[in-house]
Amino acid sequence: MLDSTLSELETRAVSLIEAAADAEALETARVEFLGRKGSLANIGKDMGKMAPEDRARVGKLLNAVKQNLESRYESRKAAFERAALDARLGGEWLDLTMPAPGARPGSLHPLTLIQKELEELFTSLGFAVVDGPEVETPWHNFDALNIPPSHPARDAQDTFWLEDTLLLRTHTSPVQVRAMEKFGAPLRIIAPGRVFRNEEVDASHEHTFYQLEGMMIDRDVSVAHMLYFMKSLLTAIFKKDVEVRLRPGFFPFVEPGFELDIQCLICGGPGCPVCKQSGWVELLPCGLVHPNVLRSGGIDPDEWSGFAFGLGLTRLVMMRYGIDDIRHLASGDLRFLQQF
Rank of each mutant, 00 (worst) to 15 (best):
V293C: 06
P248W: 10
L337Q: 05
I190S: 02
K231C: 09
R57T: 15
H225S: 13
G297A: 05
M180R: 12
F196S: 08
K45G: 08
E24G: 09
A23K: 07
Q263F: 02
K77N: 11
I43N: 10
V242H: 03
N42G: 14
G279Y: 00
N292E: 12
P192N: 06
D202M: 03
V130H: 14
R197T: 07
A103D: 11
A191E: 01
V195R: 09
D86R: 15
C286K: 15
F127K: 09
W139I: 08
V130F: 14
D143F: 03
Q115V: 09
D143W: 02
R88D: 08
F340P: 02
W139G: 02
V242R: 03
I262G: 03
D333Y: 04
Q338F: 04
I323W: 01
F253C: 02
E181V: 15
G90D: 08
E206R: 05
P105D: 05
M230A: 14
S331V: 13
R36W: 07
A25H: 11
Q67A: 14
D155L: 00
M1W: 10
A308R: 06
A128N: 15
E199P: 01
K45W: 04
S296A: 12
E70D: 09
N146R: 04
T208F: 01
E255H: 08
F250S: 05
V65N: 03
V223R: 15
W280H: 10
L283G: 07
E136V: 14
A236E: 00
Q338E: 02
S222R: 15
G310W: 05
H328E: 13
P148I: 01
F183R: 12
F183V: 08
G306W: 06
R30D: 04
A83R: 07
P148L: 00
M180I: 14
P99M: 10
A156L: 01
G44H: 10
Q263G: 06
M319W: 00
Q115M: 11
V244G: 00
S39I: 03
G184N: 08
F122K: 07
M47V: 09
S204E: 01
V201D: 00
